[in-house]
């Protein structure tokens, strides 16, 4: 029965995916920099209305993928399409908003001058006031970029991505270096933009951020898409759960991959929860002393990329 439900869910997902327009597509893309293979046959698509998060360790190729998608660089081979056209052409980028990874706004330009410069490139930009309020920059409006703190400059960098009310916003590590409060403000802005019909592609180092925002995640490793799915699917990818037992489990149990002792508890990592619990109960462990936990995204992520290398 559950298999049937699962098959039904997958079928529905596929039919949805088939009808949702693709805003951006990388197909079989290879990119090398002086012998270093940054992208090695990457396939990736951004579907309308989603928040697609690119996860991966440094050097996985996330930023290179974004450089290709925003027209900053061209692929050695494979195809790169943005809104169905070549992102290297100026007019293709009319409905694209971007947050660069490292910002160095000209120190002599004012906050509102920078926002207005960006707005001038778009047909239906967001109002400057609304943008300042959304990114908590109202107090900094009269400042020049050189006088902003790191966090304020970062918020301005994210704000300009949304200034043109674009169809697709590409955010390369939007919250790196932000304090918790600023990060939440950025998250709110991203969610409200998507609720209003926008689409987001973002890279991040923070698993918490992926968990909070992503409707879909692509894990990149060595220049390829290593895994693709929802947060839940990534966690379930290896099917590993943690069985926590209060007390010592000294003798080995079949199906347990790893045992960790934490004070009074033993943490057993396994793919086969049923078998492990049965074995524990047979050994006289009380059911009340057993706890089952899913692994965190961070653990699943480490398992995924660890298995790849």
């Amino acid at each position: 029965m559950s298999l049937l439900l699962e098959a039904d869910r997958i079928a529905r997902e596929y039919s949805q995916a088939a009808t949702t327009p693709r805003l951006a597509q990388l197909t079989n893309v290879v990119k090398t920099y002086r012998g270093f293979v940054a992208l090695d046959g990457l396939n990736l698509e951004v579907r309308a209305g989603e928040i697609l998060v690119l996860l991966g360790p440094n050097g996985a190729g996330k930023s290179t993928a974004i450089k290709l998608l925003t027209g900053l660089r061209s692929a050695d081979s494979g195809s790169v399409r943005l809104f169905g056209a070549d992102p290297r052409a100026t007019k293709t980028r009319r409905e694209l908003g971007v947050t660069p990874q490292n910002v160095d706004f000209p120190p002599m330009l004012g906050v509102t001058e920078i926002i207005d410069l960006v707005r001038a490139h778009y047909a239906h930009p967001v109002g400057t006031e609304a943008l300042l309020a959304q990114f908590e920059l109202v107090g900094q409006r009269k400042r020049s970029a050189g006088g902003l703190s790191g966090g304020e400059a970062r918020r301005l960098a994210v704000a300009v991505a949304f200034a043109g009310a674009p169809k697709l916003a590409v955010l390369d590590e939007p919250t790196t270096g932000l304090d918790v409060e600023s990060r939440r403000a950025v998250w709110r802005a991203i969610r409200s933009y998507v609720a209003g019909g926008g689409t987001v592609l973002l890279t991040t180092h923070y698993l918490e951020e992926a968990e909070a925002l992503a409707t879909r995640i692509i894990v990149m490793h060595h220049g390829r898409s290593f895994f693709e799915g929802s947060v839940e699917q990534i966690k379930g990818r290896l099917g590993i759960k943690k069985v926590i037992v209060h007390g010592d489990v000294s003798t080995p149990i079949g199906d347990v991959l790893e045992v960790q002792r934490e004070n009074e508890r033993s943490v057993l990592r396994t793919k086969n929860v049923d078998a492990v619990i049965e074995a524990l109960l047979q050994r006289g462990v009380r059911f009340d002393d057993i706890e089952i936990q899913p692994v965190s995204l961070e653990e699943a992520f480490l398992d995924l990329t660890g298995a790849a290398s």
């Binding site: 100026t90 971007v98 160095d104």
Partner: peptide, 14 residues
């Protein structure tokens, strides 16, 4: 080769 120059190149301006 500054990030700001790269950003300007991403904007829809020729």
């Amino acid at each position: 080769d500054s990030p700001w120059e790269q950003y300007l190149r991403i904007l829809p301006v020729g």
